[in-house]
Each structure stands twice: as structure tokens, then as C-alpha cells.
């Protein structure tokens, strides 16, 4: 079981390191958001509570990096299916459970590495990351990314081709990001929007990440952690189940 998870993970990382263009774009994208939206909105919003707007936004952008990277990584199962490699994995004497978990850990690892690269820019924004904080942020990133990977595998487990891929980007990934509290505070939203935000698991990830990085949060961080843990257990279980039962 561990051997199988390890080789699936190893493959993900190898492909990650090899795919330069994706690596660069996945790092450039959050930086562009920070630079353009951060500066633009910052000029209008000024401050959010005690934080400069760009400081408020930074943890959100970090989580956005995890969201995109983990989702794409999990959805690469569709690519594996389309290009046949999934069959090679399915006829090998390894459990489908190991394939799903290996994929999720692999996706979470890639995302965490990208997150660490983004984290390097934090001093420029005026967020001081101490060593202690760093060793809190890294596992937190991995945890959030692993949870998102589970969601991605649930989606990919039943998709036969990548025709539905744009649908996922537009109707799952973008709403999850926009309604996560990453780019605007969630405290003073109208009721209906506030409801949607509270069922978005990513909003808890953004909140706790902001708390760890800046000490400011909009919810109780203990609640964030509880909700995230629950979602993580749920998505992992469902994704493993669906992937094992799938064709």
C-alpha cells in the first residue's frame, strides 16, 4: 500500500518538475493577482481592519495557489484516462485506494511547493514570516491542498473526457475562489451571500491561513480547523470510494 502510494506520488512530482511552463504560470498567476488586483483594490479599499489591503489579500492568494494547483493536479486523472496510463495503473497489482491517495498526496505536495515559492514574497508585502510561523504555514498549506485534491478526485472519478473541464473551472474553481473571503472580507455580506460563503470549505482555509499569517481572522480559528478537518475526512473517504468503484 505504502509502496504504491509512494510511486504514484513520485510520478506526480517528476511530472511537476518537468512541466516548466505550468510551474512558471502557476507562480506568475498569483503574483499578477497580487500586483494588479492588490494594488488596484488597495487604492480604493485602503485598509481592511488593521491590515493593508494587499496584506489582507496575501493569505487568500496563497490559498488560491493551492486551490488551482490541487484541482488541476487531481483532475489530471482525466488526462491519465484519456492517454491510457490509467489502465496501466489499474491492471498493476496495486489497490485503487492507493492510486487515489497517492494522487491526492502528490497534488498536495506540488501545491505546497508552489505555496512556499509564493511565501517568499511575503516580506515585500510587509508580512513577517518567522521560522515558527513558517513551520505552521507549511503543514497547513499541505492540509488545505490535500482536502482540495479530494474534491478534485471526486469530480474526476466520474468524468470520461476533458470536455467538462471548462465547466469545472467556471462553475467550481472560480466560485470557490471568489467566495472564499480571499479578496473581500466576508463579515458584512448580505445574508444570502454569507450563506453561500459559509458552505464553501475554502473560506475556512483562507480564514485560518490569514489568522496564522497575520493574527487576524473573521471567524474563530478553532471553528475553521474543525470544519476543514471534517471536510478533509469526508472528501478523502468519498474520493477513495468513488475512485475504487469507478470504471
Amino acid at each position: 500500500m505504502l509502496n504504491a502510494i509512494y510511486i504514484i506520488w513520485l510520478r506526480e512530482l517528476k511530472k511537476f518538475i518537468r512541466d516548466r511552463s505550468r510551474l512558471i504560470s502557476s507562480i506568475a498567476q498569483p503574483l499578477i493577482w497580487l500586483l494588479l488586483i492588490g494594488t488596484g483594490f488597495g487604492a480604493t479599499f485602503g485598509k481592511v481592519g488593521d491590515l493593508q489591503y494587499i496584506q489582507f489579500m496575501f493569505p487568500g492568494i496563497l490559498v488560491m495557489t493551492l486551490l488551482f494547483s490541487s484541482m488541476f493536479s487531481a483532475i489530471s486523472i482525466i488526462w491519465d484516462r484519456e492517454f491510457g496510463f490509467l489502465k496501466e495503473m489499474l491492471v498493476a497489482p496495486i489497490r485503487r485506494t492507493s492510486i487515489a491517495i497517492g494522487k491526492a498526496i502528490g497534488g498536495a505536495s506540488r501545491s505546497t511547493i508552489q505555496g512556499i515559492i509564493i511565501l517568499v514574497f511575503s516580506p515585500l508585502i510587509g508580512i513577517n514570516i518567522t521560522i515558527q510561523k513558517f513551520f505552521l504555514i507549511v503543514p497547513l498549506m499541505f492540509f488545505i491542498a490535500f482536502t482540495i485534491s479530494g474534491i478534485g478526485i471526486i469530480i474526476a472519478a466520474r468524468m470520461e473526457s476533458f470536455e467538462g473541464f471548462n465547466l469545472i473551472v467556471n462553475f467550481v474553481i472560480m466560485p470557490m475562489f471568489l467566495l472564499s473571503g480571499a479578496i473581500f472580507p466576508i463579515s458584512n455580506l448580505p445574508q444570502w451571500l454569507s450563506m453561500i460563503v459559509s458552505i464553501n470549505p475554502l473560506s475556512y482555509g483562507v480564514d485560518i491561513m490569514r489568522w496564522v499569517m497575520t493574527g487576524i481572522s473573521e471567524r474563530n480559528p478553532a471553528l475553521d480547523l474543525m470544519v476543514l478537518s471534517l471536510v478533509c475526512v469526508l472528501t478523502t473517504t468519498i474520493s477513495v470510494y468513488l475512485f475504487s468503484k469507478g470504471k
Binding site: I7, F83, F85, E88
Partner: peptide
């Protein structure tokens, strides 16, 4: 075909060998 195009020929075989 059921090879991983992003891996080299040798790596494809190695993946298989590890899986088995």
C-alpha cells in the same frame, strides 16, 4: 497506447517495475 508521455522510456519501465 498507455505510456506516460511526460516520462522517459526508462522511467515508464521503472514505474512499472516498482508497481510490481
Amino acid at each position: 497506447p498507455s505510456l506516460d508521455g511526460d516520462l522517459t522510456g526508462e522511467e515508464n519501465l521503472r514505474f512499472h517495475g516498482m508497481a510490481y
